[in-house]
Design a protein around this nucleic acid. Structure first.
Lengths: 132, 132
DNA sequence: CGGGATCCGAGAGGATACTG
DNA sequence: CAGTATCCTCTCGGATCCCG
């Protein structure tokens, strides 16, 4: 399809990877997906975001910080650090980030809707395999 | 948002992970994304698919096979193995898989479109950091 | 050709302790 | 509170060899 074939010509098929892939990996990364979805609701503080994401799957401070830095660098997340004590840092989506997050949400909503069918398919697959 | 909060109540926030997450991880996995996008075009044979995906990023036989098995088990990909010599196996999307692939394509198309802005944001971010 | 089995290195990711 | 630094574990994923 267009997505890959357009990029294809620029590469020899060697070990190189297009920047396109890199962005996609950030957005679809394990924690990137969940962070983007949560931030689509509203801005979050660090620990608050950690708890919110943790409802789906627990995340360590390290990985959350790392994920947020990556998304900030890509211009998807805005970081607002207030120089107070104790520190207060708010994370929110940029306009660019909101666009990305909406795409990701599409995927998440689809997954939620079709979850049952996927699980059914798995049972069929597993049963068929055990029969061999 | 709805996606996570609906699921939230079912879990204590411990180490458990909802099935919803598992499906999402399969679909957003490194090779899952690329395979789904390619198959959106047309059915592919194994090696053919390997080359097609490899245009974006080289994939080993092992990972491609593993990815395809996961997607097949989830009911997203159909595997048609013909008992001939040499073996011929065709992979295609199921109806369910096509739905998922279209969501993924949305993300990929967005990435392609906004790639320039992301790279610009990175330069700004990196320049600002070096200034410190 | 389309895989499976095995070995191995690199990096993801968690736990803990520390800092401004 | 919001991280950083360190250590350690374990999985991902590539390379290689083999088989029907």
């Amino acid at each position: 399809m267009a997505v890959s074939s357009e990029v294809a010509g620029k590469y020899t098929g060697g070990e190189t990877m297009c920047p396109y892939r890199l962005i996609l990996e950030h957005v679809t990364s394990r924690w990137g997906v969940l962070v983007l979805i949560e931030l689509l609701d509203r801005p979050y503080r660090f620990s608050e975001l950690r708890r919110a994401v943790g409802q789906v799957k627990p995340v360590s401070e390290k990985m959350l910080a790392q994920t947020l830095q990556t998304l900030e660098r890509d211009g998807l997340v805005h970081r607002d650090a207030q120089p107070v004590i104790p520190p207060r840092v708010d994370y929110s989506l940029t306009d660019l980030g909101r666009e990305a997050a909406e795409q990701v949400r599409g995927l998440a909503l689809w997954t939620e809707a079709r979850m049952g069918e996927v699980e059914k398919a798995r049972e069929v697959y597993d049963a068929r395999k055990r029969a061999l």
